[in-house]
Amino acid sequence: MKVKIRYCGQLKQAAGCAAEEVDPGGGLSAQELIAGAAARHGEPLTGYLLDESGRLRPTVLAFVNEEQIDWETPRPLGDGDELVFMSAIAGG
């Protein structure tokens, strides 16, 4: 199973890439994949994505196939799904 992960805003630099394709195996939720991405890349991405208790920070939005996901509701993933992380940005 292949899932694409895309990093937007400041998360792109923190991850060191704009996008990556991973094979999480079967049965993983989007929430578990987020934790996996944080563990794989380490800091600074982990600190940008997750708080001390391992939950998605309120300054980051996560989407599966262009629909925002709720951290409290496990979102099963399928082959070809795209997961997008987006950090809050501003103007100037």
Binding site: P58, T59, S87, A88, I89, A90, G92
Partner: peptide
């Protein structure tokens, strides 16, 4: 309500 907290890492000057 979309972002209940401000990102601590955000700076007034940034690349654009």
């Amino acid at each position: 309500e979309l972002y209940p907290e401000k990102p601590e890492w955000w700076k007034r000057e940034f690349p654009v």
